[in-house]
Computed example of a mutant assay.
Amino acid sequence: MARISVLDDDVSLSEPTLVEGFPGVGLVGKIATDHLIDAHEMTHYANVHCDGLPPVAVYRESDAAATTPVRLYADPENDLVALRSDVPVKPGAATEVAACLGSWFDEVDLFPVFLSGLAREKDESPPDLYGIATGDGGEALARAEVTDPPESGLVSGPTGAMLAAALEAGRDAVGLVVESDPQFPDPEAARRLILDGIDPIAGVDTSTDGLVDQATEIREAKQQLAEQMRQANEDSSRAEPLKMFQ
Rank of each mutant, 00 (worst) to 15 (best):
3 R>A: 11
23 P>K: 03
94 A>D: 03
18 L>M: 14
30 K>R: 12
63 D>T: 13
4 I>H: 06
84 R>D: 14
17 T>C: 14
91 P>L: 02
92 G>R: 09
44 H>D: 07
15 E>Q: 12
96 E>G: 07
67 T>E: 10
22 F>N: 03
58 V>R: 08
11 V>M: 04
22 F>Q: 01
31 I>K: 00
69 P>L: 05
37 I>N: 00
44 H>P: 04
92 G>C: 08
39 A>D: 00
10 D>C: 09
45 Y>S: 04
38 D>P: 00
61 E>M: 14
6 V>M: 06
75 D>H: 08
88 P>E: 06
44 H>G: 05
8 D>P: 03
6 V>C: 07
35 H>R: 01
21 G>I: 09
90 K>C: 10
2 A>I: 11
7 L>A: 03
30 K>C: 02
13 L>C: 07
69 P>Y: 05
42 M>N: 04
52 G>T: 08
38 D>R: 06
46 A>Y: 07
77 E>P: 02
41 E>P: 01
64 A>Y: 12
30 K>N: 03
30 K>E: 01
93 A>Q: 08
19 V>D: 01
73 Y>L: 09
52 G>P: 03
19 V>F: 09
91 P>D: 01
79 D>Q: 15
68 T>C: 06
43 T>A: 06
79 D>C: 10
26 G>Q: 02
42 M>T: 09
51 D>R: 14
84 R>Y: 13
92 G>T: 06
9 D>F: 12
8 D>N: 13
3 R>P: 05
5 S>G: 08
17 T>F: 12
53 L>T: 04
52 G>Q: 06
37 I>D: 00
4 I>E: 06
62 S>W: 13
6 V>Q: 02
35 H>M: 01
57 A>V: 13
67 T>M: 09
16 P>K: 08
12 S>G: 04
66 A>H: 07
61 E>K: 11
95 T>P: 05
43 T>N: 07
4 I>R: 05
72 L>M: 07
59 Y>E: 09
17 T>P: 05
82 A>M: 05
67 T>N: 08
27 L>A: 01
84 R>N: 13
96 E>N: 13
94 A>N: 04
62 S>Q: 14
26 G>W: 00
73 Y>M: 05
12 S>M: 10
51 D>C: 10
32 A>R: 01
63 D>K: 13
49 H>M: 13
95 T>K: 15
73 Y>N: 04
6 V>S: 03
14 S>A: 15
88 P>L: 11
34 D>Y: 01
28 V>S: 03
93 A>T: 05
10 D>G: 14
25 V>K: 00
31 I>S: 00
9 D>Q: 15
40 H>Q: 12
84 R>A: 14
54 P>T: 09
66 A>L: 15
83 L>A: 02
23 P>L: 04
56 V>P: 02
50 C>H: 04
8 D>M: 10
87 V>C: 09
66 A>C: 08
38 D>C: 03
62 S>L: 15
78 N>F: 07
34 D>K: 00
21 G>P: 02
